[in-house]
Amino acid sequence: MLVHLRRSIVVAVFFLVVCGLAYPLAGTGLAQLAFHHQANGSLTADGSTLIGQQWSGPQWFQGRPSATVSPSGKPNPYDAMASGASNLGPRSKVLEQHVAARAAALRKEGITPTNELVTSSGSGLDPDISPRSAYAQVDAVARARHLPRSVVAHLVATQVHQPELGFLGEPVVNVLELNLALSKLS
């Protein structure tokens, strides 16, 4: 028993050093050298392209609703310190109310709601929407910015990311990249 205990302690310390310090710190060193941009969060001057943001006003393309909640328990969309989903079940009345309210708000802005634009994501930080959801906002954005519809629609088309290798995942539009391109347009 005692010999097991002594060995256990030595091995636990050995693994703490190898797996808990050497492995992640070597990984961090390599990542910072080889993938500096990605390893630090894919940051641009206006935010991370991997972390969604709350966009205010009809002059910007909107992302998905976010279910993130501040530490005090209040809804705080796109709180990147508190990722998470709504966890509302498939027959939840609360979910129905959230979706209905979001759909009504979109219609008020002149946007025909799409599936993603009324449902919150798993992370609450989804940086993307589907191309369909981007096209659904073209009219509203063009109107707010006094731009020809065709110009905005063309902009969306240039921003569609196809699935990697043609089959991994879904085609998406990154909302931050799209809005950056939009800001350069006008």
Binding site: L95, A103, T114, N115, E116, V118, S121, G122
Partner: peptide, 30 residues
């Protein structure tokens, strides 16, 4: 479709249930 979203009659769900799913993965890969 997600039953609660269907109940709103507000939106079509062509991909399926997107509640709690990321746009880059969609319902199938998820």
């Amino acid at each position: 479709p997600n039953p609660a979203v269907t109940a709103t009659h507000a939106v079509a769900q062509p991909q399926g249930n997107m509640v709690g799913k990321e746009a880059r993965f969609g319902p199938l890969s998820s």
